[in-house]
């Protein structure tokens, strides 16, 4: 993920917290949040991932005027192997999220304006009985605030599978 301008906003934090089923008022109620140790509204621990909203090239968001690999008239809008960058998914096997790690130097709050820069890490392969050949790739994203301070370091690992994963029952 690369985002030059990732504004952290209270309404986005509210929607994100709702979507993960978290009704803690520290994510939604400024008055209640003031009385907590956080001292005001903060973002939930995995919120940084939603910086994808502010990555102009993020491949897993339909873009105006461009083909999209999800279904419409046909089961897919694109005939070639989809993916669209990053850990894009779909096709016969496709890309999935294998690991995610966060290190918090401080917690995000409304008013922060972040930049996110991602650098590629290691890649490796492994054979799996459930999904065939697995190709893993790592990336490290640094989130810096409006003062240039590093606030979150994130490490993600994506995996492309040779075929869809057999679910464990």
């Amino acid at each position: 993920m690369a985002a030059k301008h990732f504004p952290v906003e209270a309404s986005h934090i509210l929607m994100f917290a709702r979507s993960v089923g978290d009704d803690n008022p520290v994510y939604s109620d400024a008055e209640a949040a003031k009385k907590t140790e956080a001292g005001g509204i903060i973002a939930p621990p995995t919120f940084a991932q939603s910086g994808a909203q502010f990555d102009p090239d993020y491949g897993l968001r339909p873009k105006i005027g461009q083909p999209w690999f999800g279904s419409g008239k046909e089961p897919t809008g694109i005939k070639r192997e989809p993916g669209g960058g990053g850990r894009g998914g779909g096709g016969g096997g496709g890309g999935l999220h294998a690991e995610q790690h966060f290190e918090y130097h401080r917690h995000l709050k409304p008013g922060d304006v972040l930049t996110a820069t991602t650098s590629p890490g290691k890649t490796w392969e492994r054979e799996s009985a459930r999904a065939g050949k697995l190709v893993f790739s790592e990336s490290v994203t640094e989130y810096r605030d409006q003062n240039g301070e590093l606030v979150i370091t994130a490490r993600g690992v994506g995996v492309r599978t040779e075929r869809p994963i057999d679910a464990k029952s």
Binding site: H12, M15, F16, Y58, P62, G70, G89, G90
Partner: peptide
């Protein structure tokens, strides 16, 4: 979650 996070992967 797709809407909030921005990850609209059709999967």
């Amino acid at each position: 979650y797709a809407g909030a996070s921005g990850d609209y992967n059709p999967l």
